[in-house]
Protein backbone atom coordinates (compact mmCIF):
# COMPACT_ATOMS: atom_id res chain seq x y z
CA UNK A 1 0.00 0.00 0.00
CA UNK A 2 1.26 3.42 -0.93
CA UNK A 3 -0.25 6.46 0.74
CA UNK A 4 -0.64 9.97 -0.59
CA UNK A 5 1.96 11.00 1.96
CA UNK A 6 4.40 8.47 0.49
CA UNK A 7 3.68 9.87 -2.96
CA UNK A 8 4.41 13.40 -1.81
CA UNK A 9 7.63 12.18 -0.18
CA UNK A 10 8.76 10.48 -3.40
CA UNK A 11 7.80 13.57 -5.40
CA UNK A 12 10.11 15.50 -3.09
CA UNK A 13 12.97 13.13 -3.88
CA UNK A 14 12.19 13.42 -7.60
CA UNK A 15 11.85 17.19 -7.26
CA UNK A 16 8.43 17.44 -8.85
CA UNK A 17 5.85 19.72 -7.33
CA UNK A 18 2.54 17.87 -7.22
CA UNK A 19 -0.79 19.55 -6.76
CA UNK A 20 -3.13 17.72 -4.41
CA UNK A 21 -5.36 16.30 -7.13
CA UNK A 22 -2.30 15.14 -9.06
CA UNK A 23 -0.91 13.41 -5.96
CA UNK A 24 -4.27 11.82 -5.41
CA UNK A 25 -4.46 10.41 -8.93
CA UNK A 26 -0.82 9.25 -8.85
CA UNK A 27 -1.43 7.44 -5.59
CA UNK A 28 -4.21 5.42 -7.22
CA UNK A 29 -2.13 4.75 -10.37
CA UNK A 30 0.96 3.72 -8.46
CA UNK A 31 -1.02 1.51 -6.14
CA UNK A 32 -2.39 -0.41 -9.12
CA UNK A 33 0.99 -0.67 -10.80
CA UNK A 34 2.81 -1.72 -7.63
CA UNK A 35 0.13 -4.27 -6.98
CA UNK A 36 0.84 -5.73 -10.42
CA UNK A 37 4.60 -5.59 -9.88
CA UNK A 38 4.24 -7.44 -6.59
CA UNK A 39 3.61 -10.59 -8.60
CA UNK A 40 7.42 -10.87 -8.62
CA UNK A 41 7.13 -11.82 -4.95
CA UNK A 42 5.98 -15.28 -5.99
CA UNK A 43 9.49 -15.94 -7.33
CA UNK A 44 12.34 -17.07 -5.13
CA UNK A 45 15.42 -15.16 -6.27
CA UNK A 46 17.63 -15.64 -3.22
CA UNK A 47 20.45 -17.30 -5.15
CA UNK A 48 20.06 -15.37 -8.40
CA UNK A 49 22.70 -12.87 -9.49
CA UNK A 50 21.28 -9.51 -10.60
CA UNK A 51 21.68 -8.43 -14.24
CA UNK A 52 22.14 -4.69 -14.56
CA UNK A 53 23.79 -5.07 -17.92
CA UNK A 54 23.46 -7.73 -20.60
CA UNK A 55 26.84 -7.52 -22.31
CA UNK A 56 29.93 -9.24 -20.92
CA UNK A 57 32.05 -6.20 -21.77
CA UNK A 58 35.08 -5.39 -19.66
CA UNK A 59 38.07 -3.07 -19.63
CA UNK A 60 36.48 -0.48 -21.84
CA UNK A 61 38.34 2.79 -21.52
CA UNK A 62 39.96 5.51 -23.54
CA UNK A 63 43.46 6.93 -23.72
CA UNK A 64 44.25 10.12 -21.80
CA UNK A 65 44.39 12.31 -24.89
CA UNK A 66 42.96 15.81 -25.02
CA UNK A 67 40.17 16.49 -27.48
CA UNK A 68 38.82 19.87 -28.42
CA UNK A 69 36.24 21.27 -26.01
CA UNK A 70 33.28 23.38 -26.98
CA UNK A 71 33.99 27.10 -26.96
CA UNK A 72 32.41 29.16 -24.22
CA UNK A 73 29.98 30.53 -26.77
CA UNK A 74 29.02 27.06 -27.99
CA UNK A 75 28.43 25.73 -24.51
CA UNK A 76 26.46 28.77 -23.38
CA UNK A 77 24.33 28.79 -26.51
CA UNK A 78 22.17 26.08 -24.95
CA UNK A 79 21.72 27.99 -21.69
CA UNK A 80 18.41 29.20 -20.37
CA UNK A 81 20.18 32.16 -18.83
CA UNK A 82 23.80 33.28 -18.71
CA UNK A 83 25.95 35.98 -17.17
CA UNK A 84 29.61 36.79 -17.77
CA UNK A 85 30.53 33.46 -19.33
CA UNK A 86 28.67 31.36 -16.79
CA UNK A 87 25.35 29.59 -16.56
CA UNK A 88 23.06 31.71 -14.43
CA UNK A 89 20.68 30.19 -11.89
CA UNK A 90 18.49 31.53 -9.10
CA UNK A 91 20.54 32.30 -6.04
CA UNK A 92 21.67 29.25 -4.12
CA UNK A 93 21.12 29.88 -0.43
CA UNK A 94 23.92 28.22 1.53
Amino acid sequence: MISEKDVQYVAGLARIHLKDEEANRLTKDLEKILDYINKLDTLDVTDVQPTSHVLPLKNVYREDTVRPSLTQQESLKISVDQHEGSFKVPKVIE
Binding site: I2, D6, V7, V10, A11, L13, A14, I16, E22, L26, D29, L30, I33, L34
Partner: peptide
Protein backbone atom coordinates in the same frame (compact mmCIF):
# COMPACT_ATOMS: atom_id res chain seq x y z
CA UNK B 1 5.84 11.83 -14.04
CA UNK B 2 4.21 8.49 -13.28
CA UNK B 3 7.32 6.63 -14.38
CA UNK B 4 9.77 8.95 -12.64
CA UNK B 5 7.74 8.47 -9.47
CA UNK B 6 7.69 4.67 -9.85
CA UNK B 7 11.43 4.61 -10.56
CA UNK B 8 12.30 6.95 -7.69
CA UNK B 9 10.17 4.82 -5.39
Amino acid sequence: KRRIMLGTY
